[in-house]
Design a protein around this nucleic acid. Structure first.
Length: 488
DNA sequence: GCATGATCATGC
DNA sequence: GCATGATCATGC
């Protein structure tokens, strides 16, 4: 039976996808051709939901790499799951896997020649609702987005690609991490027990990986469709959300995003937060516990309130933290992250889909202030710290298994409903295991409810031990560290 | 002196 | 009223 769309037109393919929304694939196909019963077909043979959609809904013959799924229109078809949280909001469930990485092959392929570039510049992304236990053809489609990677995003993605390929060329495929890059990540693919792959410039075998758009980037696509107020939208003909960009396309043509930010911050090297604030006309109360963070925000964001408000930070999910180092090299405080969402920990099916996994595989930006002795009158009651260094950092892969054990411990406490202070077995700072769990709330009376028993339980957060932060900084400073700190 | 629990300014 | 990005305050 003929389908009423033109495979040479992206718009036409996009409009035809309307027939999938609010239906399962089985229902949508049945509406086109009652003779096709997916119950009998879909569970047989290989292939994901995307291939089933292409074959049975679009009635289009499958093609293999490296061309886009609809080559005449240059459109790649992607299906990707959403989940709902307890408040009923849609969340991204997974990163969007785009293309497998063949370590031995990719080192000879430029970005422009890559299958990713050839296929994924224009994508038809179909969001469906994840439901445990359902077959692929039973899942409900929610939104359809025709998404074009704009030129500026492609510059950042090209840089990401080159970082990933560069690491493979350096014989470090086994050290790849999603946190190495901004929008395009090298994500783990396959199960834990799968055979490792050979890499061209090292004898060490490495886990299988794929190019993927990272969860934070996917979140911006979801925000785009939600903000449109419709079930279908395309960023090819209407503007995306109004957003503030920190770095222009022109700047990215000659330098990387990270280098640009480093040079903007390092103009203030050697100055304390009061001096920086004054030069920016920013008023900061000395009682404000976020005074260092607020100062750094003003330097980079020029009036925006949050890093999340800046396009690149939102799309890349970069985590910014300020660190204060004492004259002896100790870190003043441990580093807190967001509160543990016990409902999320309970619901998550795999550690790689957890919030904590996304945090530890993020790109980090540490802005370091170091203590110096000062006779200045206005610092007589407080140690003076001056801006010293900006460090972009990714958690090394060898630390990830420890991060996983930490998360498993938290999950075990959620499952056994031992979240009250008297009952839990959370990692403490004194355990010296790099991470710990600690309160973070308005007051001690500020509580959450246990997802299992509805008992009141304390609000706690994920923390990096200060000793762990020190290790991170020592590695980044290298030989400089001893010269600055340990002579005191 | 440090680990741990408690709390704060701010902004939405 | 609550999340954020932290620092403060205590008690051992």
């Amino acid at each position: 039976m003929d389908r009423d769309y033109n495979p040479q037109s992206a718009q036409s393919i996009f409009h035809f996808s309307y027939g999938l929304l609010h239906k399962s694939l089985a229902e949508a196909v049945m509406a086109i051709d009652p003779n096709i019963n997916l119950e009998n077909i879909a569970n047989k043979g290989k292939g994901g939901l995307g291939q089933l959609v292409e074959k049975y809904f679009y009635g289009y013959d499958l093609n293999s790499n490296p061309e886009a799924d609809f080559p005449e229109a240059g459109v790649e078809l992607k299906t990707t799951p959403l989940k709902k949280n307890v408040k009923g909001e849609f969340l991204i469930k997974e990163r969007l896997v785009c293309d497998m990485i063949d370590f031995c092959e990719i080192v000879n392929v430029s970005f422009e020649e890559s299958a990713f570039y050839k296929k994924c510049v224009l994508m038809l992304i179909l969001f469906y609702l994840h439901a445990q236990g359902k077959s692929l053809h039973e899942l409900e489609f929610l939104f359809s987005v025709l998404w074009k990677l704009k030129d500026k995003d492609l510059l950042i993605i090209k840089h990401d690609y080159e970082i990933i390929v560069g690491k493979i060329k350096a014989g470090k495929a086994h050290e790849l991490s999603e946190g190495d890059t901004m929008y395009l990540g090298a994500c783990r693919k396959g199960q834990k027990g799968d055979a490792l792959r050979r890499q061209p410039f090292s004898d060490i075998c490495a886990p299988k990986r794929a190019f993927a758009l990272k969860p934070a980037y996917m979140r911006t696509i979801l925000e785009f469709i939600l903000a449109s107020g419709k079930d279908m939208a395309t960023n090819t003909d209407i503007p995306t959300l109004e957003e503030m960009e920190l770095v222009s396309k022109e700047e990215l043509e000659t330098s990387s995003f990270e280098d640009i930010l480093i040079s903007r911050i390092m103009k203030f090297k050697g100055l304390d937060y009061k001096q920086i604030a004054k030069s920016l006309d920013l008023e900061i109360s000395s009682g404000d516990k976020s005074r260092y963070a607020r100062t750094v925000k003003e330097v980079l964001l020029k009036g925006l309130k949050d890093f999340e408000d800046a396009e690149e930070f939102r799309k890349a999910g970069i985590i910014v933290k300020t660190v204060r180092v004492e004259t002896n090299g100790n870190i003043k405080e441990s580093m807190s992250f967001e509160n543990i969402d016990y409902d999320e920990v309970l619901e998550v099916e795999e550690w790689t889909e957890s919030r904590w996994y996304e945090i530890v595989t993020s790109r980090f930006m540490f802005v370091v202030f170091r203590a110096i002795s000062s006779n200045l009158h206005e610092w007589r009651n407080e140690t003076r710290y001056v801006l010293d260094k900006v460090i972009f950092w990714t958690m090394p892969v060898e630390d990830l298994s420890n991060a996983e054990m930490y998360w498993e411990n938290i999950r075990m406490n959620v499952l056994s409903d031992t979240l009250q202070d008297a009952d839990n077995s959370f990692w403490k700072l004194a355990d010296n295991r790099d991470f710990h769990v600690r309160p973070k709330a308005q007051t001690s009376k500020d509580k959450y409810l246990s997802p299992i028993s509805n008992k009141e339980i304390p609000k706690k957060a994920y923390w990096f031990n200060r000793g762990y932060v020190k290790k991170i900084l020592q590695r980044a400073y290298g030989t400089e560290w001893g010269k600055i700190f340990e002579n005191h």
